[in-house]
Amino acid sequence: MSTITVTGKVLGRSKPLFTNWRVPIPPIIGAGGEVLTLRILLTQIVLAEVAAFQTRQEQRRLIQVLSRAEIEQKVLLGKVDMGGEELNQEVDPQAAVANALQAFEDGIYFVFIDDVQQHKLDSEVVVNPDSQLMFLRLVPLVGG
């Protein structure tokens, strides 16, 4: 399955919003069927991230045996965590998708695919395995 790279930036900051990651390109039904739209692509990305979050949460429930090197590395990072935690953070995937789509429509973030800004959720988008999707989050002015 082909994937695209997802990146995130905050306007006015040099540090990325998150570490780049890859997401599967949704299959496209051709010959009179559905085309890939920004709405479908964003939905796929949000659902993939919700699934990854749930997987990370499940993994944190397991107690890990750490090597001496892993412990030393975690000490340098400021926290040694061996897991065994029940976080019970529920995420409704459909609500997450709805929030992401509404935030796009409200102009809270912009989406660029291969450096081309996307303006409408229902516009057709073209992505390739080497495509890059960037989320550009805007920062509201304080007091304005």
Rank of each mutant, 00 (worst) to 15 (best):
98 A>P: 04
90 E>K: 03
68 R>T: 12
2 S>Y: 14
72 E>T: 07
35 V>I: 04
105 E>L: 12
12 G>H: 11
98 A>D: 14
19 T>Y: 11
52 A>Q: 07
66 L>D: 09
123 S>K: 06
39 R>H: 13
43 T>R: 07
101 L>V: 10
111 V>R: 00
77 L>D: 10
14 S>N: 13
40 I>M: 06
102 Q>Y: 14
90 E>V: 10
44 Q>W: 02
121 L>Q: 02
85 E>F: 08
114 D>N: 11
2 S>G: 07
56 R>L: 09
6 V>P: 04
13 R>D: 11
142 V>L: 15
73 Q>S: 15
117 Q>A: 05
50 V>N: 06
78 G>H: 03
132 Q>P: 00
39 R>T: 10
123 S>G: 02
64 Q>N: 08
99 N>C: 08
51 A>V: 09
76 L>P: 04
55 T>R: 15
19 T>H: 12
115 D>P: 00
9 K>P: 01
87 L>H: 13
93 P>K: 04
45 I>A: 03
31 A>I: 11
80 V>G: 02
11 L>Y: 07
91 V>I: 12
115 D>H: 09
95 A>R: 13
8 G>F: 03
78 G>N: 03
144 G>Q: 07
25 I>T: 09
33 G>Y: 02
139 V>N: 09
34 E>G: 01
3 T>W: 08
69 A>F: 09
120 K>W: 09
2 S>K: 13
3 T>D: 13
97 V>N: 08
9 K>Q: 14
20 N>D: 15
16 P>L: 01
41 L>F: 07
122 D>C: 04
120 K>N: 11
138 L>T: 15
88 N>K: 13
41 L>G: 05
14 S>P: 03
122 D>W: 03
47 L>E: 06
23 V>Q: 11
42 L>Q: 07
10 V>D: 06
57 Q>V: 02
83 G>T: 00
18 F>N: 10
130 D>P: 03
79 K>H: 11
8 G>T: 00
70 E>V: 11
91 V>S: 00
70 E>F: 07
56 R>P: 00
42 L>M: 14
141 L>S: 14
49 E>S: 10
59 Q>N: 03
115 D>Q: 12
75 V>T: 07
30 G>C: 13
34 E>D: 10
44 Q>P: 00
64 Q>S: 08
94 Q>D: 10
63 I>N: 06
51 A>T: 12
46 V>T: 14
99 N>R: 15
113 I>R: 00
63 I>P: 03
88 N>Y: 09
57 Q>M: 10
106 D>P: 00
55 T>I: 14
41 L>V: 05
40 I>V: 15
47 L>D: 01
127 V>Q: 04
47 L>I: 01
100 A>G: 05
126 V>N: 08
133 L>K: 06
119 H>G: 02
105 E>S: 11
78 G>V: 02
121 L>I: 06
8 G>Q: 04
78 G>W: 05
20 N>M: 09
81 D>V: 03
121 L>Y: 05
